[in-house]
Simulated scan of single mutants.
Amino acid sequence: MEPEIVKGVELARLHKRLRRDDSDTIKELHVAHAKSLTGLANFPDLEILILAGCDPVAPETLPTLEHLLSLRIHDSGLRGLEGMNKFPSLRLLAMPRNWIHDASPLLDCNLASLEIEGNPLSRNSYEVVLPELMRRGCDVSRSQEREWRASLRIRETNIPLSCYENSGQYYLCSPGLEITESPDTDHPEIEIDEVENLLDRDPNKLLDLFRQRGGVWPPPDL
């Protein structure tokens, strides 16, 4: 089993003991910085699964968790959403700060809530798919148009960075484990104007900006 999953299981069991829960069933699991999700099939009763800074992540490679109600995958290497409808009970889906471009597979899911900020969504996903999900009654949290456009432009340059806004402040991030070992915390503050200016003049300097403001570049093992 992936070592980071083992750590998550140990923490889950500790929490159960603190709650005086003697059952063997694990219904909630937090996994951080895993490079493989091998072993999740051992926990078919999961209702809540949180994956933070994991890479790679793909719904089609995850086990079919029939009881899964809430899935949160953030700051991870999630790129495609094919197979997300394999979780029949899933109602709450949060995927902030990943590499998602095509959100159309979500139209086959029955979601009550969706968080998808900080992803380089295609124009169709942002302007057609997400409004359709909202029309169906799903509570959708998405990037504002300015940072969405910036993230989409960054994607088109093949630079492994994305842009998002939180409480009026803009940040750069690099989802997954390609260039940082802490993708869920290495989020330097930036001004959206400077990102747009660099995209116009010299997009490659975005990596310098990421490093200078506190991001990790090059990778720690270099």
Rank of each mutant, 00 (worst) to 15 (best):
D55M: 06
S143N: 04
K35A: 12
V128R: 05
L81T: 06
K27W: 11
N98E: 06
G80A: 08
D108P: 08
A34D: 14
K86L: 03
L114S: 11
N124G: 03
L65H: 11
I159N: 03
R72W: 10
A150N: 01
L65W: 10
I48A: 07
R97N: 05
M84I: 13
E145A: 01
R20M: 05
A58Q: 12
E117F: 13
R91N: 09
E66T: 15
R97C: 04
R155E: 03
M84Q: 04
P59S: 06
L65C: 06
Y126M: 01
K27H: 15
R146Y: 02
H30V: 13
S122G: 11
L40F: 15
C109M: 10
H33Y: 15
N98W: 08
L93A: 02
P105A: 09
T38P: 02
C54D: 10
A41W: 14
L51E: 07
L93V: 01
T25F: 04
C54I: 11
E145L: 00
L18H: 14
E145Q: 01
M84G: 08
I73L: 04
L111T: 10
E47T: 14
R79N: 11
L18C: 07
M95W: 02
L93C: 03
N158P: 06
W99N: 02
A103S: 08
D75H: 15
S151M: 00
A94F: 03
V57W: 06
C54R: 09
E28C: 05
S104F: 04
N98L: 00
E66N: 13
F43S: 12
S36W: 15
P96M: 00
L133I: 03
T61R: 13
D75Q: 11
V129F: 01
P88V: 04
G39T: 13
D55Y: 04
E127K: 10
R136E: 03
V140M: 00
I50L: 07
K35T: 15
R97K: 07
L90V: 00
L49C: 06
R19S: 10
E117L: 02
L69M: 13
A150W: 02
K35F: 14
L81Y: 08
E66P: 01
S125R: 08
P105I: 07
G137D: 01
I73M: 05
S122A: 09
P56D: 12
Q144W: 00
L46G: 12
S104L: 04
T64V: 11
M95Q: 03
V140A: 01
I154R: 02
G83A: 12
D102G: 07
V129Q: 00
P131C: 01
H67L: 04
I50R: 15
E47K: 15
P59Y: 11
H30R: 10
A32P: 12
E66W: 14
L121F: 07
S70P: 05
S113T: 15
L18T: 06
E28R: 13
L111W: 13
R146T: 07
I48S: 12
V129A: 00
L130V: 02
P88M: 04
T64N: 11
A52L: 15
D55V: 08
G80C: 05
S89R: 10
E117D: 14
D22I: 01
R72V: 07
D24E: 14
V57N: 05
S125C: 02
N42K: 14
L121A: 05
C54W: 10
S113N: 13
